[in-house]
Every structure is written in C-alpha cells, then in structure tokens.
Amino acid sequence: MFELTMAKGSILQGVLEAILDLVNVANVDCSSKGFSLQALDTEHVVFLSLFFPSEVFRSYRCDEDCSMGIAIADMVDLLRASNDGDIITIKVTDQNFEDITITFESPDKTKTTDMDLQLVDARSHRLKISEWHDMESEYQAIFCMPSAQFMLNCKSLSVIDDDVVIRVNEEVISFSTKGKSGCVNISHVPNKTDNPEKASVTLTHMRGPVSLTLNLRYMKSCAKVSTLFDQVKIGLSTKLPLMVECKIAEKGYIRYFVAPKITE
C-alpha cells in the first residue's frame, strides 16, 4: 500500500500546479524513501525529474516500491476542489492498482470527500539518465541565483524575442536576446564560493566558458516552478541539456533538463 497525507496548499500541490503548462502525464515511482516523478513535455524538449522525500509530507507510507502513470492535469483539477485547512490523502492499495484515491478531510473532521482517479500508461515518460553525482560533474559551469531574478530575466527577454543566449565565464553570467525591435543583455557579476548567499548570483563550478541558446517558453516554465523556492541552480554544458534545479528540503529536488537550440 502507498499512502501520503499533506495539508492543502502544500509544496507538492504548488509544484504540480506549476508544471501543468508543460506536462500532461507523468510517471510516478514511490518507495519508502519518497515520491519521485518523471515527465516529458509534449514537444519532448524538456524532461522533468523531481523527488519529494518522505519527510516533507505530513505522513508517508509505502510498503512496496510501485510505479504508476498519473494524468497530472486531472489530479490538479481534483486537488483544486479541496477547501482551506483540508488534509489531503493520496492512496493506492495493492488490491486495486487501476486508480488512486484522493480524500479531503475538513479541519473539524465533519466532512470527507473521496475521489478515484484512473491511472494511465506513462511508461514513455521514463528516461535513462546517469546517477546525478556523475552527471553534475560533467557540467562546464554551474551557477545559483535568486529565483525571482531568474523569472525577471526570462520575462524581460521574452518581450524582445523567443530565444535567450546564456553565457557563463569567470567574470560574467549574461542572459541576452536580439529581436526585430531591439536587444536586451542582462549581466551579473558572480560571487565565487561553494556556499551561495541567498540574495546573490554565485558561480559554484567553472570548468571553462560556455554558452547555450534556449527557447524562452521552456525557460519561463522552469522559472515559474523555481519561484516556489528562494534559489535556483543552473548548469550549462555543450554535451548535456541545460539543467535547472531547485532543492526541496535536504534530499529532495526538482530538476528540469531543457534541450538547447543549435545552429545548423
């Protein structure tokens, strides 16, 4: 059996709301350690991988590892029907592995709402990626910035064009774009430390200058999720997709991998 409870408006609910503009269906793996989710956007440009450790939930129980496909949009619609103060329970029993049961319980425990949501096939959303610690070392540059600043950069640039060029070297991290009506260049002089301060832009790993061109539509989606957190970590490599990461508690994360644009 798998069962988790959370308060209405918890971080899981906020994240599911924020990924909706990219993701319809997701593959969810549950283990005793926590709840992980993988999904591809419909254009297959973005791969989303997130892990919520069991300790971020009000209660969490998973007797046996299980994997299921969830129609995220339908699940979010159901979750929206909860009221302030409700405790939300998501449950799958071994006897019935065709749907999940979502229950809302009012704070005074006088009203309970049960809903069943059919599981779907989401096996195509599973991708084989390396262990994260192996993969992170392959990024040429990794920097952290306040997520509000990241969102502001993406919004400012999208006024001019659909693409952004992110360039990183020892001296500067820049976000720039050029369109028919003009150009925008936003430059940040980074701190260089392993312990980024919350309010600053910090270059944490640097193995050589790197630049990538990305579609701002996807970047704005990443920025939307990131604003649920203080800081966002961004990794660039010419051999890997751009990585945008937010940490959830000590062990949890949301990672977006965004395929860049390349010159023909």
Binding site: H44, R126, T263
Partner: peptide, 14 residues
C-alpha cells in the same frame, strides 16, 4: 537559423 534539439538526443528511453 537555430534548430531545437530534443531531449532524446541526450537521454535514451528506459
């Protein structure tokens, strides 16, 4: 002109 790469260029399916 730039072309959009797909994520499958980097990660294979399980």
């Amino acid at each position: 002109p730039c072309i959009q790469k797909r994520i499958i260029h980097y990660f294979s399916k399980k």
